[in-house]
């Protein structure tokens, strides 16, 4: 048997998951819609005063985007567990971590990227100063893949359970605290005219670390959670 190249497996899974998402492309709009609704509710709760909204805008956009991603996270492995295709991944002669990395990338492209594209709209609704918008986008571009990677790790642990919903949020919160702090910290520093590179650099370093470690940890978690 010729040794199958790892790249083939990665590309295969990436293509399959993107194709699946394309077949159900209507569902990609749900997280964006959710974020839009939440962002709309804030001015109603706090009043339409521009200065106040501008002060909290970055934090609200960030938290809204992460919560919208949380909603979509359960769909990362559950369909694959239910139809047995996850077993096929586990048995394939490919490094499982790499296959999972492809799944996570596909998930990020189909859930986080639309949110990222919608975030300028959310920011504008909340009067975020236009000058700060690039910082927010960079922060989101670093925070959302982190959310996908850490979320995949946590959701992998719950695949053996019947439902995860609230549990997922509870498990993910401690992991997301540093991400939220640094991402929001960068934007608020930029808003106050302070240097904002350091928190972004920390986020970037965390992302690199997560890119290396999370897929392998995710593979270990899946093997534990399916061992029944």
């Amino acid at each position: 048997m010729s040794a199958p190249s790892a790249r083939t497996g990665y590309v295969t899974i990436l293509r399959r998951d993107l194709l699946l998402a394309w077949r159900r492309r209507g569902e990609a709009a749900f997280p964006v819609l959710y974020a839009l609704i939440v962002a709309t509710l804030f001015p109603f709760a706090l009043g339409p005063e521009g200065a106040l909204l501008a002060r909290i805008a970055a934090g609200v956009v960030l938290v809204t985007v992460l919560l919208a991603m949380l909603l979509a996270l359960d769909g990362l492995f559950r369909p694959d567990v239910e139809d047995g295709s996850l077993e096929q991944l586990l048995l394939a002669p490919q490094p499982l971590g790499l296959l999972l990395a492809a799944k996570i990338l596909a998930h990020w492209l189909t859930t986080a990227l639309p949110l990222l594209l919608a975030s300028p709209l959310l920011a504008a609704m909340l009067h975020l100063p236009v000058a700060v918008l690039p910082v927010l986008l960079v922060a989101l571009a670093l925070a959302t893949p982190l959310m996908s990677l850490l979320g995949a790790l946590v959701v992998a642990l719950t695949v053996g359970t019947r439902r995860s919903g609230m549990l997922l949020a509870l498990m993910l919160l401690p992991l997301m605290v540093p991400v939220v702090i640094f991402a929001a910290g960068a934007v608020s520093a930029a808003q106050q005219g302070l240097p904002f590179i350091a928190p972004l650099a920390w986020l970037g370093a965390a992302l690199v670390l997560a890119l290396v470690l999370a897929p392998a940890a995710c593979a270990a978690a899946l093997r534990i959670a399916l061992d029944a």
Partner: peptide, 24 residues
């Protein structure tokens, strides 16, 4: 802590739940 406890109890098989929660 609550996440660990919650995950442990979410599994039907106690030992499997314990291993998943230990990983968390």
């Amino acid at each position: 802590y609550l996440g660990v406890i919650g995950l442990y109890h979410a599994f039907e098989d106690t030992r499997q739940g314990a291993r998943a929660a230990a990983f968390l």
